[in-house]
Amino acid sequence: MKRRNFIKYLASTGLLGYVASGGVQAAFAPSVRYLRPPGSHDEAKFLSKCIRCGKCGESCPNRAIKFFSTENGITSLDTPFIIPREQACILCMKCGDVCPTGAIPKIEHEANAIMNDVQMGRARVDTHLCLSYQGKTCGVCYRACPLQDVAIRVGMLEQPHVLDKCVGCGLCERSCIQIPQAIRVIPEHKG
């Protein structure tokens, strides 16, 4: 093979590989709504730091942290996530304590630190589903919230209003008695 042909061959296979890997990435594009453990926000930064040791899950007393297989793309294989409707974060901050990599930052188990540094997502109420907005006094989400009157407050007939300080732990979504849930945490990370 001539050198020029060889270089062409190399370049074309390289290009093909690049396109193919792009295709793979697109095929496995995120399609799941999930939260990352408390403290981590930026998805790209999280993925570049997490080494998939699984210690966050092993330290989670509430067993809220689960691990991706291939359903969220190969780049997030074996990374931790939380589906609050299944099991929500209780903001104990133990995962950040054991994480060696800085993917989940260490945050003190204290209300102010949590309110300032944790931003997993933000709860949003669907007024068409919420019982309190249908005239049936409920208020369960408010009672489940660890940051009552700071992250969520209730108005007339226990109608919930999510405030700016909501950290997105998902305990409200977990506790909602409506099926499907009338309050959901919208993740903050750009995943």
Binding site: I51, G54, K55
Partner: peptide, 11 residues
């Protein structure tokens, strides 16, 4: 919890 994790990364 003093011993946690695995050989990939442990405490």
């Amino acid at each position: 919890s003093v011993i946690k994790g695995n050989t990939w990364s442990g405490t």
